[in-house]
Design a protein around this nucleic acid. Structure first.
Length: 853
RNA sequence: GCCCGAGUGGCGGAAUGGUAGACGCAGCGGAUUCAAAAUCCGCCAUCGCAAGAUAUGUCGGUUCGAGUCCGACCUCGGGCACCA
């Protein structure tokens, strides 16, 4: 007897699929299509278990849908632009292009042995000129359609390296390489007008029924629609041109509690003052050293500086409020200026306390005594807006009303009295796409001294990145390129300069799903192909992309539709979204002589000790796999040791797909053992010649249909771990079955089919052993016969006061009245009741009986 | 700081508001073996001799009945617009 040998069988079946072209996506108008897509990888050079998990899940869906008769599109590509390639070039020399394409070749070679049902003929990388050239063409269309514009915006500036830094390159306010204090610097940059469709992106979330609720919520909060009042304070002692300060507030009902006005350090007034007042200049410069990330601003200590300027309260011109420049006011949100009401805002409270500003409550709890004295607040009073409160400094609406009602009344009152207007605002800002970097898609415009900003002609696309660049000094090599930068103006032909900024890599990933429908088309998309394949029926990826990537893609699909590159039905490109959890592993740590942690690879550790020295390791439980912590398990090693099916089976079992999964060596071995057991079962059943046994055969057939129903439900519901558990159960049932060989062969054949989306190589092997026709990958998915799933009898637990005290087994359709009688006669029940009268009897048919005493 | 999640045996986890712990790992016992590996069979939440009691991060609520619904809190994770 031979044995389960994945090293031999897996390549064999992969070759068979390849020879048959099983996974080539076919545009077949006669069949329904199904487009399954996993978020494409960044070509770091090594695949990791997170990739294996992501692509295995997609593969289960793709193979399952294919066997259900769909024409499946399941492509793969590479999110190939981005900073790591440039960092590698700076650290190790070489060219980002060589590094990237080398990594792609390596990763493709690591992925192919996994046996994924991918149509590799559609593969592309976003750094292919054929791809980014089409992206440039769309950029030009969007520019013409008014969807892109230029404006000034802040970047993190490293004054030593003279280069722009990404937020992740700023560590504690300092540049990661130079260590210099980072400054905010203004640059003119390109923006997509995503905020113009903020309301639309928000309301369309309701239609995304097959997206996780949490993702829709996160996007809704990110878009941040608010209704508020915008009005102007008139100023006292302000410089010329600043006789008014526009502010926006979502709490106009608290106007009578205002105690100061605060403006952003980037507000025009602050910028004016910094030019004339050294003290203010120093403070503003200090504020700008916090960097550009909202997180850093929020976490920084709240600080402000009194400008000496005053504003008049809109309801009482004699009432003056001081104007502060405050480090926590964002120029991008509202008008970049607010009024502070410390009594009802935690941040304003902290600020007012720090600078000795008045804290006057506008409302008190509804239950407070109207005649009572005002007691100083210990903290800001911020009840939910839906809770009624008693207004003591109200000016519109009832004395006792909810915040919501008071806000609406305040806006009406202000509008009626000529103090500002109600406006709907969004937190969502326009999408800045300029990056001062080399390894990205060049922005196809030219700056001409005579004509200004001129779009490149489409026939000159792609604007290719030059290859002759060096990374021996920081900054963008395009900026200092001797020839590429200088060009002729496409409009007047005079000397001009190319735009040296490249595009945010989020642009690349905002339309790759559309390109997969026609990856070699001479235009960004092909209308017939886009019409057939769009939308993505199932998109799968990490929750870390819940907001930015998915929101940008939703916007970009709309922009593509507006410029004629996608049909109207594709403006929401992802019909269903699934967000999977991470793959984690224990961390093994010892300490060096200085007490600093030293990490060790899993393969160097055995039973809690280092293999080499026997030294005991400290075990830190389940953390995200990362190189620096050395808790990575390389899929290549797993596939080499156990085969792809074992890696796939393990990654699907145990943990629900949306949760993190902990990789354990024992779990991987268990997966391998189980697959070996299935192999032996098939081998034994194929050779068996036991006679039929009507009763046993029938029981096995029922179990088979139960397995079909349960495994299918698991796949449909994205609960692969429960499908796996059901397959374990079915295997246990089958191995114990006394049914005849015909019935067992039948059952084992169904087993092969149910296994095929998850462990496709083994499934083919079993299918083949049993004499199945063709490839199981092309067999029709089995259907469960509903009649086979019905049980004749049910066991009902009996509870007394909600605690389980006994059970009865009754025919499935016994009337409740009879069940009641049987339940009350049950000896456990009689004993527990001990003669107590029954107050209530609840019979839930087919479920439970509860006796209340 | 703000937004969004997740917490169930020794471990991973299962459970349309209806028997908490399916299935797997580890562990324990047995079979097979000269012996071991591999394999096969059985046991396995905790406390208790038992009857039973206690158990789904903590505290409270709704319900005949709560892991599941509601409120507060704790811990861990994701995101915060130039990481991808």
């Amino acid at each position: 007897m031979s044995r389960y040998d994945p090293a031999a069988t897996e390549p064999k079946w992969q070759a068979a699929w390849e020879a048959e072209g099983v996974f080539v996506a076919r545009h077949d108008p006669a069949r329904p299509k199904y487009y399954v897509l996993e978020m494409f990888p960044y070509p770091s050079g090594r695949i990791h278990m997170g990739h294996v998990r992501n692509y295995t899940m997609g593969d289960v869906i793709a193979r399952y849908k294919a066997s259900c008769g769909f024409s499946v599109l399941h492509p793969m590509g590479w999110d190939a632009f981005g900073m790591p390639a440039e960092n590698a070039a700076m650290e190790r020399g070489g060219h980002p292009k060589d590094w990237t394409y080398g990594n792609i070749a390596d990763m493709r070679a690591q992925m192919k042995p996994l046996g994924l049902s991918i149509d590799w003929s559609r593969e592309f990388a976003t750094c292919d000129p054929e791809y980014y050239g089409q992206q440039q063409a769309m950029f030009l269309d969007m520019l013409q359609a008014g969807l892109v514009y230029r404006k000034s915006a802040m970047v993190n500036w490293d004054p030593v390296d003279m280069t722009v830094l990404a937020n992740e390159q700023v560590e504690d306010g300092r540049g990661w390489r130079s260590g210099a204090l980072v400054e905010r610097k203004e640059l003119t940059q390109w923006f997509f007008r995503i905020s113009d469709v903020a309301g639309e992106l928000l309301s369309a979330l309701d239609g995304l029924k097959n997206w996780p609720e949490k993702v829709r919520l996160m996007q809704a909060n990110w878009i941040g629609q608010s209704r508020g009042l915008q009005f102007a304070f008139s100023t006292v002692d302000a410089p010329d041109g600043f006789d008014r300060v526009e502010v926006y507030t979502t709490r106009p009902d608290t106007l009578m509690g205002a105690s100061f006005c605060a403006i952003s350090p980037d507000h025009p007034l602050a910028k004016h003052l910094e030019r004339h007042d050294p003290e203010i200049a120093e403070f503003v410069a200090d504020c700008r050293r916090i960097g550009t990330s909202e997180e850093a601003l929020e976490k920084a200590e709240k600080r402000g500086m009194d400008t000496g300027i005053r504003v008049r309260h809109p309801f009482d011109t004699a009432w003056e409020l001081p104007v502060y420049i405050a480090n926590f006011i964002l120029m991008d949100y509202g008008t970049g200026a607010i009024f502070g009401c410390p009594a009802h805002d935690a941040r304003d409270f902290e600020f007012a306390t720090k600078y000795g500003l008045p804290i006057n409550p506008v409302f008190l709890p509804a239950s407070s005594d109207p005649a009572g004295d005002e007691v100083p607040l210990a903290e800001a009073f911020v009840p939910p807006k839906t809770e009624p409160v008693r207004y003591v400094r109200g000016f519109a609406g009832a004395e006792i009303q909810t915040g919501e009602a008071a806000i609406a009344a305040a806006i009406d009152f202000c509008e009626a009295n000529g103090v500002g207007r109600g406006v709907t605002n969004y937190r969502l800002r326009d999408w800045g796409l300029s990056r001062q970097r080399y390894w990205g898609c060049p922005i196809p415009v030219v700056h001409c001294p005579a004509c200004g900003v001129v779009p490149e002609r489409k026939e000159n696309l792609p604007v290719r990145l030059p290859d002759d660049v060096s990374f021996d000094q920081p900054g963008n090599p395009l900026d200092r390129h001797p020839t590429w930068r200088d060009c002729a103006c496409p409009s007047c032909g005079g000397p001009a300069r190319r735009e040296t900024d490249t595009m945010d890599t989020f642009v690349d990933s905002s339309w790759y799903y559309a390109r997969f429908t026609a990856p070699r088309a001479p235009t960004p998309t092909d209308p017939a192909e886009a019409d057939y394949w769009m939308n993505v029926d199932q998109y799968i990826g990490g929750i870390e992309h819940a907001i930015l990537h998915l929101l940008y893609s939703r916007f970009f699909a709309r922009a593509m539709h507006a410029t004629g590159h996608l049909p109207a039905k594709a403006i929401e490109p992802f019909d269903a979204l699934f967000t999977q959890g991470m793959v984690t592993h224990e961390i093994y740590m010892t300490r060096d002589a200085g007490g600093r942690p030293v990490y060790h690879l899993p393969e160097d550790v055995e039973e809690g000790r280092l293999r080499a020295t026997g030294e005991a390791v400290e075990i830190i439980p389940s953390a995200k796999m990362s190189k620096s912590k050395k808790n990575v398990v390389d899929p290549v090693n797993i596939v080499r040791a156990f085969g792809a099916d074992t890696a796939r089976w393990f990654i699907l079992s145990d943990s629900p797909p949306e949760r993190d999964v902990e990789w354990t060596a024992s779990g991987a071995e268990a997966a391998y053992k189980f697959l070996g057991r299935l192999w032996r079962m098939a081998d034994e059943i194929a050779a068996s010649d036991t006679p039929d046994d009507p009763e046993e055969d029938r029981a096995l057939t029922r179990a088979t249909h139960r397995a079909i129903a349960d495994v299918t439900a698991g796949i449909e519901g994205f609960a692969f771990n429960t499908s796996v558990a059901k397959l374990y159960g079915f295997a246990n049932t089958l191995s114990k079955s006394r049914a005849g060989c015909a019935a067992r062969r039948e059952a084992m054949g169904v087993m092969a089919q149910l296994l095929s989306p998850m462990v496709p190589h083994l499934a083919e092997e079993i299918w083949h052993m049993l004499g199945g026709e063709g490839l199981v990958a092309q067999a029709r998915w089995p259907e469960a016969d509903a009649a086979m799933l019905v049980e004749d009898e049910v066991t009902l637990p009996i509870q007394i006061n909600g605690k389980r005290r006994g059970e009865i087994t009754v025919p499935k359709d016994m009337p409740p009245a009879e069940i009641e009688k049987l339940a009350l006669a049950n000896e456990d029940v009689v004993r527990f009741l001990a003669g107590q009268p029954v107050k209530k009897l609840i019979v839930v048919p087919g479920r439970i009986i509860n006796v209340v005493v």
